[in-house]
């Protein structure tokens, strides 16, 4: 599977150089072409050890960034800062080079959550759920416009238009995640922030939702930031990767470079821990990890 659109090797090398520049730009602290950026961000709850320390990440239009790490690494906190739901204790979050607030910011930075059950209001019809950003941000000219744009968003995520009249519980987990994505893209944002968007889904559904996210990012020129602990999903979806360990970015760059030749021992450990079919049922059919039986 190759939804990120990375084609032949030379194209990938070009990518690699490009996103090296983007990452360097982020680290150097110059805005560059970044649409959303965390610059030397720290975050701590009162009288507690810091959750994030000196984190700099950036994403540009049409690109995708993975925030990788394990529980307690600070991924979700970083995402909340990028969403403008909390303020960093130090450093800055920059949207289009400015403050992450106001209507423009809200319109252009939309989230998708992990749990497709708690992210949709069970008492609203899908049409109302998907059109909420349009109504809250007053982006509607007429009543009919809402219906049209909801239908368009539902079509974009591969759901039938009549889904708008139904309630969330009538849909499966994967379909519900598509509804959440439709809500996020209905106001045509510049950035999609996804927190473990597929980890609650079954494997076959997971593949399709990853493909959908990749395709949407590509076709709409949206930047996608995804928090994930699953490196297979990261490899399939994101061009750039930042690895977080205990609140610090220990390694970042193009995914191909970070996962292909990890420089930091923690990245390598993460990579070695991924359960893989290719290793488990390797060519010889014998598992290397298995100790000899007595």
């Amino acid at each position: 599977m190759n939804p990120a659109g990375a084609g032949p090797d030379d194209a990938e090398n070009a990518d690699r150089a490009e996103s090296h520049d983007a990452a360097n730009a982020a680290r150097a602290g110059s805005g560059g072409s970044a649409v959303l950026e965390a610059r030397d961000v720290g975050f701590a709850y009162r009288k507690a050890a810091p959750v994030l320390t000196g984190v700099s990440v950036a994403v540009s239009p049409g690109r995708s960034l993975a925030l990788v790490g394990e529980s307690g690494a600070g991924k979700t906190t970083l995402l909340r800062l990028l969403l403008g739901l909390a303020r960093p204790s130090s450093g800055r979050i920059l949207f289009d080079g400015g403050e992450p607030s106001g209507r423009e910011f809200r319109r252009n930075v939309q989230p998708v959550f992990q749990d497709p059950y708690s992210s949709l209001d069970p008492r609203q019809r899908v049409g109302r759920i998907v059109s909420e950003p349009l109504r809250s941000l007053r982006l509607l000219g007429s009543r009919d416009e809402a219906g049209d744009r909801v239908a368009e968003a539902l079509r974009a995520v591969g759901l039938p238009a009549d889904a708008a009249r139904r309630y969330p519980h009538e849909f499966s987990g994967g379909q519900r995640q598509r509804i959440a994505i439709a809500r996020a893209i209905v106001c045509e944002p510049k950035v999609l922030l996804a927190d473990e968007p597929v980890s609650a889904l079954d494997v076959s559904t997971r593949v399709r939702v990853v493909e959908l996210l990749a395709e949407l990012g590509e076709s709409r020129g949206m930047a996608v930031v995804m928090v994930s602990h699953d490196l297979t999903v990261v490899a399939a979806l994101c061009r750039d990767t930042a690895v977080l360990e205990r609140g610090r970015v220990v390694e970042q760059g193009p995914t191909l470079a970070v996962l292909g030749s990890p420089a930091h021992p923690y990245t390598r450990k993460l990579l070695d821990s991924v359960p893989r079919l290719s290793r488990a049922a390797g060519a010889g059919g014998e598992r290397a990890s298995r100790p000899e039986r007595p």
């Binding site: 494997v203 997971r206 490899a235 399939a236 191909l256 991924v274 079919l277 290719s278």
Partner: peptide, 29 residues
């Protein structure tokens, strides 16, 4: 099961797993 799944459902399950893993296997074999 992993290399010669016979049932259609097993095939889709195995293919999904391979698909997801494919990109990672290519980057970091």
């Amino acid at each position: 099961i992993v290399y010669e799944p016979r049932h259609a459902y097993t095939r889709s399950l195995v293919n999904s797993a391979w698909e997801l893993e494919g990109e990672l296997d290519r980057m970091a074999p």
